[in-house]
Design a binder for these strands. Structure first.
Lengths: 347, 347
DNA sequence: ATTATGACCGCAAACGTTTGCGGTAACATT
DNA sequence: AATGTTACCGCAAACGTTTGCGGTCATAAT
């Protein structure tokens, strides 16, 4: 590490500019503050002449209303907060992009908070959202979040909360989530279609509702489809465990063809490492299929076939729901987005 | 997609709670607002008895100061803004985590803005930061950002700006960035050490300063180290172009051993696809080395050797610099973090 | 000549804090 | 008895807006 430090930054500290205010404009123009305020918002009470003078001066000195003063008066800001446990996640990325795009169009700005998957930090963020009276919050809760009363409290202050992805169990809230069952079913159906006999399914922590849903559905569809399929399932808590599981399976199947279903990107990553380590050829030696947001599957050749959990579409749905809430809808809605199969060449 | 909508959410809209204020506490306790205010901040003028009464009632009714009112009075908030072009980037992820951790400890909260690599949006975000009088902003500018006067303007309002990663050329600002030359040199040295004869270097857009730095240094070190190395270089604007370039190279070298240097993760992704497509064995048939934030290299087996550009360390440095600025430092400092080589088994 | 009608504008209160300053009572000091 | 000291506390202004209401002119209607 090295440092270059030698340039004096001028005297920006000494003559710190103070922002222009309504008062200054008013004094300059010899009118009252109220007149200026009204002129700037094109109020009918103000003459065209005055309006012009005010607007000219305002743009000249680059007037911008002080958001704190405005908010203190109006209790109304146009910003959304998005709260996520982590950012290293393509799904969140696409979700956020999607929301932002539309929100901006409707005059809302959005900023992102990161809870680090820590309920304590999450609580702090929530509080700050409440105090700031944001227009609404989109949140994917931490895996440790038990108590959802802080969220309903937000609602109590008139701030709509839309849960997405990681959502609480309670029915009394607005939820937008990916169709776990549907995605699992899609993958299972694809395996059936290809007529594969040996299947290894690798799933995450069974304590997570997302795992339960995918696990159950996958098993069921496979069982319904053909009884001569030999399905092994295993639960891996991280990428490493997934790799180990795949490694063992490769030993066990001893050259026999089999397919691996990966419940998540993390698991897929581990499995692909095992495949490479053993120098297996995807498709020829082993079939791979996954549920994914689409980033990891495209890193391999052949690209991995996966059931897509698109943050993009979910974002649109979420913002739509949010606008409804702001408009006064007081129903709790659970929206489940069904995914589609993106065919790579891996199965 | 399907929707469940049937539950009425109670009447949270009707009896929307209004937040507790100093005034309410004052009325309840028959003291003045000033007394309450002072009691809550443990002012010596207030008796222990009064303080206790106030504090009790305050926690009881869950009083929290209205940030807008506070700010209007004090012009002082404790929050940092981090502005990034995109979120799908492990480097930013680690940078942000790193900053957040320390900032929280010092009583600052941080939120994240996303510019979508659009200078227009970036401008809007900057303005909002100025109006909100955030305590400081960390920013990685868009690739299209030409005019840095909006940033110096922030400085003019007493808001420190720390650039990171994508930084402007000007010397008159605080910059924290990865050591492009150093990382390239590290990779080149590794290639020399392994005594490899044929090298393909794939770089990004030559218009980007980051490309220029890495390109130059890589070439120089290689040339200095050994004259019998045959180096081909090519510029790829995206993952696909990188894949094509690697594909061609594989044809050209016709079985001869060679190594590929990838300037970035995006390029590495393309190259690895080509390698898999041609069924080459990494290490045995082809050597791979990259500059990376460490996410992609770990997805393959053997893991890819790379020169690390750690957002984590950079974050620490950036926050440190920020605190200095807030404390009044008026020097412009350019800090360059040198990277280290993370050995996988790919070369 | 009086009254109605607009068009245009300003007063002042309110949002919820913070803080300088002044005030009162009790007690200690001359 | 007059003065000084100390411990507490409240008044009021200020931060920068928004907005209901009332006011002043000029012009049009009676």
């Amino acid at each position: 590490m090295f440092v270059v430090e030698n340039l004096y930054l001028g005297n920006q500290v000494r003559n710190m500019r103070l922002s222009p205010t309504l008062k200054k404009i008013a004094e300059q123009l010899n009118v009252s503050i109220s007149t200026v305020s009204r002129a700037l918002k094109d109020h009918p009470d103000i003459s065209a002449e005055t309006k012009q003078k005010v607007n000219e001066l305002a743009t000249l000195i680059e007037y911008d209303p002080n958001p704190y003063a405005v908010n203190l008066r109006t209790h109304n800001n146009k910003e959304f907060a998005i709260v996520v446990p982590s950012l290293s996640n393509f799904f969140y990325h696409s979700f956020i992009s999607s929301i932002e795009e539309d929100a901006r169009q409707q005059g809302y700005s959005v900023f992102i908070y990161r809870s680090s998957n820590d309920p304590q930090i999450e609580l702090g963020i929530l509080k700050s959202c409440r105090l700031k009276r944001v227009s609404g919050v989109f949140i994917s809760i931490t895996t440790e979040t038990k108590d959802i009363s802080p969220f309903t409290k937000l609602d109590g202050y008139g701030i709509p909360v839309i849960f997405f992805d990681k959502v609480p169990g309670s029915e009394l809230c607005n939820k937008i989530c990916v169709g776990d069952e549907h995605a699992a079913a899609l993958a299972a159906a694809e395996i059936l279609k290809k007529g594969i006999k040996n299947v290894l399914g690798i799933f995450g922590d069974l304590n997570m509702s997302i795992t339960q849903a995918r696990f159950q559905k996958f098993k069921t569809i496979l069982a319904e489809g053909a009884e001569k399929i030999k399905l092994k399932t295993v639960h891996a808590l991280n990428s490493n465990e997934a790799e180990q599981a795949a490694l063992h399976a490769i030993e066990d199947y001893k050259g026999e063809y089999f397919a691996v279903f990966c419940m998540s990107d993390e698991i897929l990553a581990g499995v692909m490492k095992a495949v490479q380590r053993k120098n297996l050829r995807v498709l020829q030696d082993v079939g791979i299929i996954s549920i994914s947001d689409g980033m990891i599957p495209k890193l391999f050749y052949p690209e991995i076939t996966y059931a897509e959990t698109s943050g993009f579409k979910l974002g649109k749905l979420a913002l739509n729901r949010m606008m409804r809430c702001i408009a006064g809808s007081s129903f709790a809605q659970t929206i489940v987005d069904e995914s589609r199969l993106i065919a790579g060449g891996s199965i």
